[in-house]
Nucleic acid binder design. Structure first.
Lengths: 331, 331
DNA sequence: TCCCTTTAGACAAACGTTTGTCTAAAGGAA
DNA sequence: TTCCTTTAGACAAACGTTTGTCTAAAGGGA
């Protein structure tokens, strides 16, 4: 690997001059001829700056951390995708941490790594962890969910999204609409529940508490919650599921019961992942701007790093309903 | 952030001594008392080594790159998961690149980053890219697929896996077994096709070429391939799909045709992803040791870095059939 | 006692950049 | 010509480690 010094020698200049050329330092005045000589030398030696040395000097790594629960959540895939593209565009790389590890291990790793900032979208980070990282002066942005005590979040409008999903059901003539919510210690689930209630309210439909089932965000738990709804004497005609995994579990429960979707039960899922179109029946979902959320979250993080951030949380609009085959029109 | 020098000053020793204590340098001889004094100072100042400085000195970054096509493939999720756990265990971090970017951009980024090694599982890396990276002396391991001109691969036994899947169908009495293969410019698809033919052969079933449909690894293409198989005059009773996405597409085609699985057509998919259990009907799949593959690939990469590798590709055994509801027993 | 070997740790150079400061030469104005 | 201002680029310190070498003190043997 060529160094600045070698390039400088070949071009017959000082290495500081090469450095300034490489970095387009405006304070440098240089003859066109000299610049070209340097550029040629760089080309010839195939020089590329040593990032470790640069990091040491500039006290920045151009690496952003990304802590997520796991990679299996297809919603995460979209967010990560948007985040990675934006990060690369801005000259950063993404270091991923899935928090199978204990939080403290991650935190140590992060601090040791001296990354420039951290994006979190992880349940396992609780308030005290965040504070610990804040202590270290590490810029943090929470993506997809709000965390207690953090103003730096980038989320989609879960409330509006849920409202949209439930309104769709109402427009199709449903009145007995149940909701399988996510775990209510997450902001997303709470907002979606609020959206559900708001839609009901605006549609002049009475809220029935037994129509709301809380569930972990998993296929298995969605299954159990749906089983419970099916056992109700006054069985709902439609269900709004708070996540795609819950929707999957609900579908399974309905179909194993020998019922069909949408004939017996209509179903709307949250988040339009790639297989919503592929399963049977094709699932009607609320599509949220996930990649944009990843993109904007990185944008905010970089703003914080550059002290350009206004300190306000961002709620990204743009939800819409993707109507497929899992909702039946009641006359 | 505290530095070595500050710790040294507080402990009343030279910073080189602190460094040796931090790194457990066996060449250091030191009084217990002094060591404890240093440890106390480290604790007190909350010292953690500056990785940039260390990297600069040791010419290693403890960062491993991971280049994948995209995050949406659930098979990748498992591989990444295994890889990340192992990497962390070995003191490395994982930097991800999804190759939406052009290869050359990735390669530049990689080289600039001075990462210690690279795991690839990406179609978009072709032979010449690999060679370019080899030129740079960057340790590379290909995971999940073999790439022309690379001996450093870690794969599962796709051939055996496919054979197992088809044998399962044969055991259930099927003789008219079709295969939707993946794109035959990938080693995985070729091996799986071979497994299919071997199983047929060992089961004394004649190979019919129109029973093999090549397809891209996507839901849409699987759908098209299945449509074609359904239009055959001598329609198969069972299909072995070369990937889970293809299987999803095939299911869709079958169900849209008004046929049911497994009554009209039996189906076996490849790779047991989390939603195989959730879709309707529950899909019988061939489960491969994906996380182990990710783990072993990182292991091999680190071996190469440490010049401990034997240069032989690794094929990981351990495939098994997960029998669910998508295969019907013919009497 | 003297000499030799350990023990315990200090010294200093080096890794490859970045960046504030300095200087020599060139050009322009008077 | 002299003096002043640009222009063009050199000099050198610093970032925080690691590691080969060196040295002073302590201990041991004869």
């Amino acid at each position: 690997m060529a160094t600045l010094k070698q390039v400088a020698k070949l071009a017959g200049v000082d290495s500081s001059t090469v450095s300034r050329v490489v970095n387009n330092d405006p304070s440098l005045s240089i003859k066109l001829e000299t610049r070209e000589r340097i550029l040629k030398a760089i080309e010839e030696l195939n020089y590329s700056p040593n990032l470790a040395a640069r990091n040491l000097k500039k006290k920045e790594t151009k690496i952003l951390g990304l802590a997520i629960n796991n990679f299996f959540n297809p919603v995460m895939a979209s967010i990560i995708h948007g985040a990675e593209l934006r990060a690369n565009k801005e000259g950063y790389n993404l270091l991923v941490y899935s928090s199978e590890h204990s939080q403290s291990k991650i935190i140590n790793s992060l601090v040791d790594r001296h990354i420039d900032g951290l994006l979190i979208s992880s349940l396992t980070f609780e308030e005290e962890d965040i504070l610990k990282l804040n202590d270290k002066n590490l810029p943090i942005v929470s993506v997809n969910r709000k965390v207690l005590g953090m103003k730096n979040y980038v989320v989609v409008n879960d409330m509006q999204g849920a409202k949209l999903g439930v309104k769709h059901l109402i427009e199709f003539g449903h009145k007995k609409i149940a909701h399988i919510s996510g775990p209510l210690y997450t902001s997303t689930a709470v907002e979606r529940l609020m959206g559900y209630r708001t839609a009901l309210n605006e549609g002049d439909i009475k809220f029935i508490s037994e129509y709301v089932q809380e569930s972990e965000n998993s296929i298995d738990d969605g299954y159990i919650a749906m089983e419970h709804l099916l056992s109700l004497s006054n069985r709902p005609t439609a269900v709004f599921a708070s996540s795609i995994l819950i929707a999957l579990g609900a579908m399974k429960a309905i179909q194993e019961e020998g019922l069909t979707i949408p004939n017996d039960i209509s179903l709307v899922g949250f988040h339009d992942v790639y297989f919503a179109e592929a399963i049977f029946p094709r699932l009607t979902t609320v599509k949220m701007p996930l990649e944009e959320m990843g993109d904007k979250a990185i944008g905010k993080l970089i703003d914080i790093i550059n002290k350009k951030d206004n300190g306000e949380g961002i709620i990204i609009p743009g939800e819409r309903i993707i109507s497929r085959d899992s909702v039946k029109r009641l006359v």
